[in-house]
């Protein structure tokens, strides 16, 4: 299934990419599994595993790592927010 994955702030810089369209294997069905799937690519993608308190969103709603990922979803990974 196809999903769109977005990265922000320090994580975006570490990965050198802000977004990617991705074909996921059927067994990658949650945000946490997607994170592990990407981190397994090796450097620099292991930043996804090592970033402290990494946050995630599905379709622009903040979610936890057990949230499901479906075809067509927009999934974002980012460090804790620092606005205001």
């Amino acid at each position: 299934m196809m999903v769109k994955v977005l990265f922000f702030a320090g994580l975006r810089e570490a990965l050198g990419v802000g977004s990617e369209a991705l074909a996921l294997p059927a067994e990658v069905g949650t945000v946490g599994a997607l994170r592990n799937h990407l981190a397994a690519r090796g450097e620099p993608w292991s930043a996804l595993a090592s970033t402290k308190n990494l946050r995630s969103a599905v379709n622009q709603q903040m979610v936890g790592s057990d949230a499901p990922v479906k075809a067509g979803d927009e999934v974002a990974f980012f460090p804790p927010v620092t606005g205001g």
Partner: peptide, 10 residues
Amino acid sequence: LKTRAPFWKK
């Protein structure tokens, strides 16, 4: 806003 809105400062 400080903890839930997706802004990042560099």
